[in-house]
Design a protein around this nucleic acid. Sequence first.
DNA 1: TCTTATTATCGTAATATTGCGATATATAAA
DNA 2: TTTATATATCGCAATATTACGATAATAAGA
Lengths: 107, 107
Amino acid sequence: MGITKTQIFDKRQNELAQLFKILGHPARIAILQHISTQNSCICNDLVEEIGLAQATISQHLKELKSIGLLKGEIEGKSMCYCIDLDRWNELQEFLNSFFNTTKHNCC
Amino acid sequence: MGITKTQIFDKRQNELAQLFKILGHPARIAILQHISTQNSCICNDLVEEIGLAQATISQHLKELKSIGLLKGEIEGKSMCYCIDLDRWNELQEFLNSFFNTTKHNCC
DNA sequence: TCTTATTATCGTAATATTGCGATATATAAA
DNA sequence: TTTATATATCGCAATATTACGATAATAAGA
């Protein structure tokens, strides 16, 4: 046991859960906020500003990339991680559609 | 290691992450959908419809209650779990405010 | 080419989550 | 009161996540 039984849920349920799950870590929230509002998209800057080890930040960046939220570009000898705004809006709509279609009660 | 370093993040970041995290499991998504769109709010019905053990469903219900999304009321000898619509809307706005304030790129 | 700087990946330890059987608790009905 | 039904909690095993040091890979500049 301990393994999530994804096979008993449908595609949309698993997708929604996966998106929520990846957003469900404060370091990843902080990364997104830094990139967006602090004008900091260089991996090394994030390491210093957030205060986790470089390997850890790199791992979190990888997960955010896995759902398409971030795209990384080589900037000299650094990596510039930027938010994919199209994907960002797509996800926001997807999550909102979940919230809106689940807004009714049975009693 | 292995423990999330919540102390280096601020209250809002931890709150957001906690909400996303709890929504980040397909069983909990399914529970919310069943309650809302299948008119099924009795714990035992959910057990049968979702196909996880009763103990497991009970645990997931507890987590959804922990962020205020569900409230349970005694209905005869069963429990009726309903979505707290005020809290639901509050969360939707909270998540949208995160999405909207993080919608800019540094480059 | 050699060195330096930056990021990714590997391996591993600590902790958290998931799932379930067993059991406790609570309520309704007999 | 006794029995049946429904839910919560406990304890545990399996798996996943988090974090980091060490190291590999890559690119710029001396």
